[in-house]
Design a binder for these strands. Structure first.
Lengths: 195, 195, 195, 195
DNA sequence: CATGAATGAGCTTTCATTCAT
DNA sequence: CATGAATGAAAGCTCATTCAT
């Protein structure tokens, strides 16, 4: 019945989340005020609180939004019939492209503890789950002889770390497509696992 | 002579800077109050302002402290008589170890804009200088035939990014020495430049 | 229409300005805290900041409020068809009465530099404009032969100075109406221009 | 015996007072910090407290210094054998010149209550005494038929007010000597009492 | 649903003042 | 006498959050 209204509400909420994410990355979480977000969307502070419970909640949902997407992407890759090498390549490239695209809300939270203990745990759970999935790609490749490394965990951290860091310096450029960056990262990071 | 007193003062300032850096990383810049720092050092807020001009100044000096040390380390390596390969290895290892040791004040600033335009520029200048030095190591190696890569700049970013990220997850462990981490990173990141 | 609400808001802002002006004069700008103002109005500090940007802004707006009124009054007098003598008389009396009535926020600022360079300039602009208008009254009278003085500028300063000073000592008294004070000042200060 | 030392101390205290007065006028009482004064004199904060009990004390003594001098000047004039007219002329001129010379510490206090009730009373006592003396000049002149006015008190306030105000706008100029200003004021303000 | 208004807790910063050395 | 260092109270200001209308 009211599904139409509900849809509207969900959409509006998404709009708010996206704007919040943008500002959080642009100016930082603390420097971004609820009023900033409201102004940018031509709403009032009060209106935002109709869709969102708190500023913390806003940040949390931003993260969940992105993390869920990342996990889905990775799961799809893992469930495919590709070789370990191909899977790793696709994992790296898809993460690079997604981080560039979303400009990495994913990362905000890792850096500073601005969530309550409780929410922070949930965030870490998702992150850990993503890392586990990624690690399984490496582990599988090691087991089937495609990859060689004395330390899967460190390899994982090295790889994900270098990718996460892209959001620090990325700016769109004419002479370098996102695809090129993704290729460079996959080609060179794969070397860590082969030799 | 008052050199004794002066020494004391300089040392105290360093203590404050270090504690600030610790807390900034632990809880984030905004979540850390001057009072937090004071309490941790069993001083009063006022006493801190005797040594430091403002919270922003505190952050800025934290960064300068670490950046200067990093640059010095790298310069020393560059000026040595080692081969390009050895230089890269030493650059990576020394940065990894220093980041672990100082727990990376180095990074705080890149992520969020919490400094005034003016101070931020100074910080970026130092960072850029470090990156240039590092790039010169790669460039030199490429010129003397030791390294191969189609994109020196991306290689640099990949390498430094992965190292910077260590501060995100590092925790001291019994079964893994810092030296081992440094070795793993140098050994595997060098692969990016060789093959 | 929201005009009702708007009106309320404007009125409230005026109430705040007036109370601030009162306290600034009573206790001085620095000795008056925002909390003082808030308490006096039975509001909270935060509420005041909803209407006003800063303490400095508060002082600036107080001044503008009064200065604008003074200038309007004087302009009206100048544009009338009265003789120069009558105009001077009315100028003096209206200023005396207004200063008594508003207890002279007009003056606070001249004495101490508590505004930023920028705002202070704006204030001086208004004051200068008022003085120019007043000077034109004297000049006109001198030209049409009504007034005699060897130094119009000093005469202006002497006259306005003595009037401004009223706010220093004025207290309502039973045996002396404001009108009487105004008459005394106009009658005697006019002597400066005649003889 | 130690009179030499004492002299030194008294002189130093005077130096401090004068510098304080200067800064109080230049930047206002609240905007001037003890450190400002100390820096300007190349002393330390602590050293100032050896000569002065508190910031309030400093302001109070500044005032006393000037007020005492003004009162002495006026008393001397009164005790002379001049006519009432001459006495008034000399009173006005000497006050104008003194205010210009000392740039009017005299005034700071009238405008804002920054002293404790107790000290403020003492200040007002001195001021009242000065005003009484001045009033006596007018009264004497009225009694001997030299002056005419319906309200001696208002006349006094008008005259002293206009003179006090000089400190507001006075700046040394090439084309106008202090003596000229003093003459202009005496000549024109005397008109209030004659006609 | 949306808004204008208000709250209140908490933060950075300043400074007069004190005191051991 | 003088100083460096420290204290602590108080101020200005910000903002997430709430709520009557």
């Amino acid at each position: 019945m009211s599904s139409f209204r509900e849809e509207r509400a969900v959409e509006k909420k998404l709009t708010i989340l996206r704007m919040a994410a943008n500002l959080f990355i642009q100016k930082g979480y603390y420097a971004t005020t609820i009023e900033d977000i409201a102004n940018e969307l031509r709403m009032t502070k009060g209106a935002i609180y109709y869709y969102v419970n708190s500023k913390e909640d806003l940040l949390f949902q931003c993260h969940t939004l992105v993390a869920t997407k990342c996990i889905e992407n990775l799961q799809e890759i893992i469930e495919s019939n590709d070789t370990s090498l191909k899977k790793l390549e696709k994992s790296i490239e898809s993460l690079v492209l997604y981080i560039i695209e979303e400009n990495a809300v994913f990362n905000i939270i890792n850096r500073h503890n601005m969530l309550s203990e409780e929410l922070h745990k949930k965030v870490l759970l998702q992150r850990d789950y993503y890392e586990e999935l990624f690690e399984s790609v490496l582990e599988d490749g090691k087991n089937d002889g495609s990859f060689h490394t004395e330390n899967v965990k460190l390899a994982k951290l090295l790889i994900l770390g270098s990718i996460n860091n892209i959001s620090t310096w990325y700016k769109p450029r004419e002479d370098q497509s996102n695809k090129e960056i993704a290729n460079f990262y996959s080609k060179n990071l794969i070397k860590v696992l082969t030799e």
